[in-house]
Amino acid sequence: MSAHVIADDAEALAVAASLAAEFRPGASARDAGRRLPRAELDRMSASGLLAVTVPAGHGGADVGARTLAEIFRLLATADASLAQIPQSHFAYVNVIRRQGTPEQREFFFAELLAGRRFGNAQSEAGTRHVQEIRTRLEPRPDGSYVLTGVKHYSTGALFADWIPVLARTGDDRLHVAYVPSDAPGLTVVDDWDGLGQRTTASGTVRLDGVPVPADRVLPHHLTFEGPQLHGALAQLLHAAIDTGIAAGALAEAAEFVRTKSRPWFESGVETAAEDPLLIQRFGELALCTKAAEALLREAARSVDAAGADLSDDTAAEASVAVAAAKVQAARAAVEVSSALFEVSGTRSAADSLNLHRHWRDARTHTLHDPARWKIQHIGRFVLNGTRPPRHGLL
């Protein structure tokens, strides 16, 4: 596989905008037929977009959080499933940046620059909570490991070259094992049946005695032993996806009203776009969306600032800023995608138009982790100065 190497932030944003324009026309049909976007992901890989956080010293563009968030927002305005697939990819690139040895960084950054993709195998079903990981890395006499477990919600795994797996060793410490997708004992099952995000293929990964060399395992537990931005960056990308869903739904609603809707007879106007009540509602929805976009930019700025001067205080400020962006983005995505039907009228409910994909995507993706806990952490920080906890979901 070969891929273009993006030079800087400006080129990364231009490539993302171009891909979003390319992907937008086919998004509805892909969702309606659950046509998995292999060709589109290959285009994304070949464009170099999936390697933009590779450090400059290894030949990458090393873009910041502001650029990365905008990349995800742009992609999500076109196709929320396509935008979600690489979210874990970048989270696990970040693990390599922070915890990889020089040899691991050299190897995996070269893989990324060649267009290789990371999936994910982290969440498990049937556990007490999301942080309980039962998948195990058992050591072998030669220093390698054997990996055993079952993972769910494995977005991107079906399309990946490498699948990062969260697992614990005998001392219960958390590690990430980077497993090639064709490893013996590894099976990816396309059994995702979510009502939204239908083409993410967020199914099951089974690990039955998968051999893992020692140099493919990274000590993820070290990530959370000091100030960290791992969770903030991962959540920032989720917020960008929700913000993009809101913007995409708003744009499609406006186009529908301008071109297909009829004015209500009591309005006394010639077109639906002149209806003062619809104008009012579009203004409200635009404010909701613009608030999400503004908070997203502010959160990304905070993550970049913390990365330049990392401490407990700057990490806390970044996490709280991202939490605020995530809450507003989730609200905007659900409200705007639902209001699409309110402003567009009865015709918009036709199943053949598939306008409901925006709401289905918003409703599904915003369930990733509860906004109510983010509000708790914001309140504790503002009222009592309590720093948020160190984990990968904040």
Rank of each mutant, 00 (worst) to 15 (best):
V5Q: 14
P25D: 06
A32F: 12
G33C: 07
E40Y: 00
M44A: 04
L49D: 03
A65E: 12
A65F: 01
T67G: 01
T67F: 01
I71K: 03
F72K: 00
F72E: 10
A76W: 00
I85H: 04
P86I: 06
H89N: 09
V95D: 15
Q104K: 04
Q104T: 05
Q104S: 11
R105N: 02
R105S: 00
F107W: 14
F108E: 04
A114V: 05
N120D: 02
S123E: 14
R134D: 13
E138P: 02
V150Y: 02
G156V: 02
A160F: 13
I163Y: 01
D171V: 02
L174R: 06
V179D: 09
V179N: 05
D182K: 01
P184G: 08
D191P: 10
G194Y: 00
G196H: 08
Q197A: 13
T200Q: 11
G203M: 10
G203A: 08
D215N: 10
F224E: 15
Q228C: 12
A234N: 13
Q235I: 05
A239H: 06
A240K: 03
A246N: 09
L250R: 04
L250F: 03
L250H: 03
R258F: 05
T259Y: 07
E270T: 11
T271A: 14
F282Q: 10
G283F: 11
R297A: 10
V303W: 12
G307K: 06
A308I: 01
A315M: 04
A316T: 07
E317P: 06
V320G: 15
A329S: 15
A332W: 00
A333I: 05
V334Q: 04
V334P: 00
V343A: 01
D351C: 06
S352D: 15
T364K: 02
L367H: 14
L367R: 15
P370R: 11
W373P: 02
K374P: 01
Q376N: 14
H377E: 15
V382H: 12
T386I: 14
